Computed example of a mutant assay.
Amino acid sequence: MTQGSGQRRGDATAGEFTVQPGSGSERVVTVPDGKGGETRIVISDRGVSINGEAVAGADARPIAEVAPAPVFAPGRARKDIPNGVIAIVAIGCSMIVAVSLGSPLVRSFTRWLDRRTDQSRTPSDVAQRLAAIEQAVELVAVEVERISEGQRFTAKLLAERAPQDMERVR
């Protein structure tokens, strides 16, 4: 005797069904009807009968034999995934997106800054003029230093003269 689960999803009243070999090539399937009774289905070479009433002819037998009873896989429970894994995966994916989108944006921003500083540079002719002005200022500073040395020397000579010579000069 073979037993299978006749319970379908959402069908709380369906119970177990039994499949028994009958006389000859018959198969007898007994299914509870949910009201305390049972329905008897007989499949044979002559056809299919339910509770003694013929339902189909000889062509119904191969269909009944080929069609297996539905087997439902158990649903995957949420608790199969450890805590925090979904959050870690979401953070990882968002970091990948941020890096893949952010790095070209940062590169383009730095290029824009480089181009901006290149445009603010002075042209070469202005740089040459500024160099000439700087050289001229240095030459003037040297000449002023020479003049001040000459004045110090003269002041020293005048200070060394005798006071009576100074009276004569006046």
Rank of each mutant, 00 (worst) to 15 (best):
G47I: 04
V48S: 04
V48C: 02
N51D: 13
G52K: 01
E53H: 07
E53I: 10
A54E: 06
V55Y: 09
V55Q: 12
A56Y: 03
A56M: 07
A58L: 08
A58G: 09
A60D: 01
A60G: 14
A60Y: 03
A60W: 00
I63V: 08
A67E: 13
A67H: 14
P68A: 15
P68F: 06
P68K: 14
A69K: 09
F72V: 13
F72W: 11
A73M: 09
P74A: 15
P74R: 14
P74V: 09
G75Y: 10
G75R: 10
G75M: 13
R76P: 08
R76S: 14
R76N: 13
R78V: 10
D80F: 09
D80V: 10
I81E: 11
I81D: 11
P82F: 02
P82M: 04
N83I: 08
N83L: 09
N83P: 10
G84P: 07
V85N: 06
V85D: 06
I86H: 11
A87R: 04
A87W: 05
I88V: 08
I88C: 06
I88P: 00
V89Y: 05
V89I: 09
V89E: 03
A90Q: 05
I91A: 15
I91C: 06
G92I: 01
G92D: 05
C93Y: 02
M95H: 04
M95G: 10
I96W: 04
I96S: 08
I96P: 03
V99K: 03
S100R: 07
L101I: 07
